[in-house]
């Protein structure tokens, strides 16, 4: 699945999800090509880029899938996040609605993939800090609650991007090593549905509505 035993390399699939215009493609381009936005094209069809990493002598190959952000396209989500080892949920710190959308994605991914997927939340556009509308504490405590790491990034100024991907990769590596140990004794896979999460989240979402 995630590990290619023959070559000794780990292959991880990561999917970038988030509302339109939050900067998913910019983050990806910054990370892969260290570029910001020149020639950058709309992401209508999910595209992916590869990145090779070496962490503690382990060779890792990331294929990072970028998706269309416009709300209409979210219905196609399952096609994109299926078989993902990690997801980066991006929001724009100046757009509280885009943060609400992150919550929806978290909910959906938890339901559909259980704890098999490593979640990371990225608050992008910190270069626009003065326009921030998503409170810092709210974002971080939410991430904490759902067991996701939270990062602040600016694709434009190249802040936090490297850390974001590096940390996610390490988490995926941990998870895959744990899983492969478990695999030995395991005979079946059971979907983990995080029931406790639901009521907490509902209150959370209704909270954001009244903002």
């Amino acid at each position: 699945m995630a590990t290619n035993v023959a070559s000794g390399a780990h292959n991880f699939k990561v999917v970038l999800l988030g509302e339109g215009c939050v900067g998913k493609t910019s983050l990806l381009l910054r990370y892969i090509e260290d570029k910001f936005n020149d020639k950058h094209l709309t992401t209508l069809q999910a595209t992916f880029l590869n990145k090779r990493l070496n962490i503690n002598g382990k060779r890792i190959n990331l294929s990072i899938w970028d998706t269309a952000g416009q709300e209409k396209f979210h219905a196609l989500g399952p096609i994109y996040y299926r078989n993902s080892n990690g997801a980066i949920l991006v929001y724009d710190i100046t757009d509280e609605d885009s943060f609400g959308k992150v919550k929806n994605w978290v909910k959906e991914l938890k339901k559909m993939l259980g704890s098999d997927i490593v979640l990371t939340i990225a608050g992008n556009k910190i270069d626009l800090e003065h326009e921030r509308t998503v409170p810092l504490e709210e974002a971080e405590s939410y991430a904490n609650m759902v067991g996701a790491k939270h990062f602040y990034t600016s694709a434009k100024l190249n802040q936090g991007v490297e850390d974001l991907f590096l940390d996610l990769t390490k988490e995926m590596l941990n998870k895959s090593e744990q899983t492969s140990q478990m695999d030995v004794s395991r005979t079946s896979q059971v979907l983990v549905v995080d029931d406790e999460l639901t009521p907490v989240q509902t209150s959370c979402c209704s909270g954001s509505k009244s903002n």
Binding site: E19, E71, H74, A75, L76, G77, P78, I79, D97, G100, K101, N104, C205, K209
Partner: peptide, 16 residues
């Protein structure tokens, strides 16, 4: 943005 998927979208997801 909508909090939940609309009926049409749910159906699209089901199809997907």
């Amino acid at each position: 943005r909508a909090e939940n998927f609309s009926e049409t979208e749910k159906q699209a997801r089901a199809t997907v």
